[in-house]
Nucleic acid binder design. Structure first.
Lengths: 147, 147
DNA sequence: AGGATTGTAACCTCAGTAGTTACAAACAAA
DNA sequence: TTTGTTTGTAACTACTGAGGTTACAATCCT
């Protein structure tokens, strides 16, 4: 089972916001959906989560969405948490009712917990070390003109 | 979305196998299911994957399953791969058809790929560093008698 | 030959994802 | 103030994979 593409879509959307120029036409959910190639409602749902996390400011009605921070101040881990692809500390699901009468069943959960937490944290630390700025810089190296 | 509990069930089952004594009654899928608290078929499906990966030997008909290696020689990463909770290099799903006419859409995938691979590998490296022996030792410290 | 157990197919239910339609609420500009 | 656009959400759909369950042929030991 994979981690939802909401995460990559969120990064895509934030990249568009980071790279938008002042003289650009406003980025509406419609236009962002065009770049991601999905439905505008999918974008709005994700924008709602990013707004809730305080990463973006959305202007209803007139359109237009803006970052509340510099791209260099937004880590991918924050984005990951914002779109709630995985609840905190729950990357691995563990079978929840092992037989308490069996020594293995009784102790397997605590025996695994530590390792699984570490594995998850190792993954998240990589995301914590990469910012939106890194992503947009990479994109810019390959292309200049915007949507 | 979480990583399937097949992984933790597989570790549970392997722990039972590692801790079984020679004078024990044979471990059938029925008995293992009793410890995990699930259906025997679920166990057999997982045993099938572990067998395919060469981690266990299953004796059909008469019952009984055995490890093909010492617990210290079985890493959790091998188990993880055996039960195919996540296809190789596919922990994160990325929206697959971004608009190629947009510079961001055209480049987002390659801009993300590197980071996501690293994040995934960091997680897997933790699993690679823990063996079944570590798990069973931990379990044994807490209990002596078997199922 | 008999009895227990595995290997699998087939089916069910449930949850989460992503896409879609529809529409009220919010707001800018004329 | 009215008009037109856009957001925010609810509601529905289709699809996917997980995990549980039943059923039964194939296997193998005794």
């Amino acid at each position: 089972m994979q981690i939802s593409s909401r995460f990559s879509v969120a990064i895509h959307v934030l990249s568009l916001l980071a790279l938008q120029q002042e003289d650009d036409v406003l980025l509406t959910s419609e236009r962002m959906a065009g770049s991601v190639n999905t439905n505008p409602v999918v974008i709005r749902r994700i924008l709602g989560q990013l707004k809730k996390a305080g990463l973006v400011e959305v202007r209803p009605a007139s359109g237009g969405t803006f970052l509340t921070r510099t791209p260099a101040d937004i880590s991918l881990l924050e984005v990951y948490r914002a779109v709630e692809v995985v609840e905190e500390g729950q990357l691995f699901s563990v079978h929840d009712k092992p037989n308490p009468k069996c020594p293995v069943g009784r102790n397997i959960q605590s025996a695994l917990d530590d390792t699984l937490q570490q594995a998850q944290q190792a993954m998240e630390q990589v995301l914590a070390g990469v910012t939106l700025h890194h992503v947009t810089t990479d994109i810019q190296q390959k292309a200049i003109t915007m949507c």
